[in-house]
Write a protein that binds this DNA or RNA. Structure first.
Lengths: 145, 145
DNA sequence: CTCAATGCAAACGCTTTGCAGCGAC
DNA sequence: GTCGCTGCAAAGCGTTTGCATTGAG
């Protein structure tokens, strides 16, 4: 069983747990999401799913994504100036760095930043429900291209 | 000259520098923005401006906001689940904490987080153009209400 | 007097929704 | 066979834009 099969299984069981039917459209989307290494937007997911289920509608894509997000198995990111992007939430928590020139999305994790965020909230009597940290960046001149 | 007059002056001169006309609508918006202590959205700014210029249109509000943002004198924030919110950028840099229950927006600044962000980008050969850090929080049980 | 700014209404881009027919269970 | 899901088309929401008119300079 591959890593991707495992992820697909995970997404599928989340839907089953929610008591919904696994249709051809949903099965296609689940595997597309499981094998995505990037951060595709809804239309891109539709495009990829069409290889398996030609004619799948964008409404279905959005409805499924909304359901999966509610189940907590995928994440929806609203970066600046683009439609929402999605990724399965199996991997550990991370934040994002977006190259403003290319649109490329990279991931990073920094334990110390996380800790400081919690301290900031704590100091004011709050606890963090979730956060959003996005670095909009540009390759440095002379940097490795 | 009050602090608010100073801010209004600052916003006005940014527009003048851009070579645009200071109309009644714009003058009203500039002072509304200057005296705002919160993070109002476009319709709210329109509402406040209407006290001075009844009938000011939302298009005008948006057009002026876009211009001021381009001049770098106001900031546009796209928090989750709400229309864009605006604030004059006179004060020093800060990030935001949003109470998910009340919608209240609070500001905070943390030098160490800023520094770590720069380091993360630097380590990968990038420099930060701008960032977005938002903490979606909830008052802790037993915390000062 | 001129040309930029306004208000209106229409278009926009992304996302959600109502509905009649379809298909997973 | 039931009833949840689908595709379609239409609506929603915040924001932008085209255009004829108005008003700042």
């Amino acid at each position: 069983m591959t890593e991707i099969d495992r992820r697909t299984e995970n997404l599928t069981s989340a839907l089953r747990r929610a008591g919904v039917r696994i249709t051809r459209q949903r099965a296609a989307l689940l595997s597309v999401l499981a094998e995505a290494e990037d951060h595709p937007e809804a239309v891109e997911l539709q495009r990829r799913a069409e290889d398996v289920v030609p004619g799948i509608s964008l409404s279905t894509v959005y409805r499924t994504l909304t359901e999966l997000e509610a189940q907590g198995v995928i994440l929806r990111h609203q970066f600046e100036g683009t439609p929402a992007r999605f990724e399965h939430s199996e991997t550990h928590h991370h934040d994002h760095m977006i190259d403003v020139d290319t649109g490329e999305v990279m991931e990073f994790a920094n334990e110390r930043i996380e800790k400081l965020q919690a301290e900031v909230a704590e100091a004011l009597g709050y606890e963090i429900v979730h956060h959003r940290l996005e670095l909009y960046v540009r390759k440095k001149a002379g940097g490795a291209e």
